[in-house]
Design a protein around this nucleic acid. Structure first.
Lengths: 220, 220
DNA sequence: AAAAATTTTTAGATTTACCTAAAAATAAAT
DNA sequence: ATTTATTTTTAGGTAAATCTAAAAATTTTT
């Protein structure tokens, strides 16, 4: 049986490993809101259980077993987020903390049934893909809004920032998942992007644009 | 913030207090699957936090604060059970363990919304009443099947035993919530009860009958 | 390549919830 | 009313996950 805490470590390591190959102690400590010394302790424990490969001073990588456990938690987290938004009418900026708790409920049966109840969703309310019960992800083809050229268009299909502040901001601008957009201009001065959404012309900072993910249907 | 463990103690004490006024250390230990010595430790902690009144060697009673906390957990447990049965198609004998975990998810908002999503149910899949968000229970008027006389009838509205074995047995006999029954005979020899359900005559042991709760509509 | 800065680990403590074994209090039986 | 049995508590310890402070390794800078 895996403890709540172990599961959190695995999940955090999994997400950090999406950016860098070897995940550093300090990075984990920051994410998990704890001290590096505590992380070292836990890493040793996880290594003992064959969930991570660990070389002193070199950081960790998940083993196959560790990765499977992590993906399973990610799956649960995202399915619960879909439940909260689709069924309980939570906003996309309100679901993270609750899902953080729900993801640790351990019943395989529960998750299978929840998945079915939700209609086997392929992505969560932020556009992140939901792995199937074997841990397989559907292929996704996102590009950052900042990578579009003037005249290019596409559909908002994800965000790479989950802070409540960011999501509320997008909501206010009408930039929600599924919306069609087209880049009409890019400002030289600050790199801010002018886009066309639902008939309106709006300007968003480069910082915001960077975290909006677009699928282009290959038309550009 | 109340710990997972503290919540479990409160819940157990609450349920034990339904039978006896002063709840004994050993009784708690048995329910919570731990040793009496550990219970004494935890009781002291709960008394410190004003959740129970504790007199050495005399057992505990919940304070008003403790009772509120306990009722809140009972509410969550029962609402999650309704969710599992009504929405995820769990059987009534399969929900207990999962609800045991879900009841500790701590978000007031979540439970309010879940309650609404489920249509503000008044009772759980075993017929146990669900307190409202203020902790108030609807009045229920159950009697044990064994208290009915020959010729008396009523509706099955609850069970006072939640073991999987018992519930599966009832299921097989067709004795589920909402079913109309009538007592046609009581065997002198072993006290077993003959009843009429959906047109059929069946015989159930006194032990089983004792745990079936009937509402009689006051017609007897 | 030595010095400085950063990162990571070790060592030793703390807290929570549990344990065993023995002592103390209460309840039951003779 | 003693003795016996049961229940409860105390005392001292363990394991998990954390912490602080200091030491060791690695990386960066000069």
């Amino acid at each position: 049986m895996r403890s709540f805490t172990e599961e959190n470590y695995l999940k955090i390591i999994y997400h950090l490993a999406e950016k860098t190959n070897n995940v550093q102690t300090n990075a984990i400590a920051e994410q998990i809101q704890t001290k590096p010394a505590s992380v070292t302790d836990m890493i040793k424990k996880l290594a003992e259980k064959d969930l991570v490969d660990y070389v002193k001073y070199q950081g960790v990588t998940l083993t196959e077993k560790g990765k499977q456990a992590a993906v399973d938690i990610v799956r649960k987290h995202r399915l619960w987020e879909v439940f909260l938004v689709d069924k309980l009418n939570f906003k996309w900026d309100e679901v993270h903390d609750v899902a953080e708790e729900l993801e640790h409920i351990k019943s395989v049966d529960l998750i299978e049934r929840l998945d079915e109840f939700l209609g086997f969703p392929k992505s969560d309310p932020h556009g992140d893909p939901i792995p199937d019960k074997h841990g397989r992800f559907a292929k996704t083809q996102f590009i950052k809004l900042t990578e579009l050229k003037i005249g290019d268009g596409g559909t908002i299909t994800g965000v790479s920032q989950h802070s409540s502040a960011f999501l509320k901001h997008l909501e206010k601008l009408g930039l929600t998942l599924g919306k069609q957009i087209e880049v009409s201009d890019v400002t030289d001065f600050d790199g801010s992007v002018e886009i066309l959404v639902t008939g309106k012309q709006i300007n968003i900072s480069r910082e915001v644009a960077k975290h909006i993910l677009i699928s282009t249907n290959g038309k550009n």
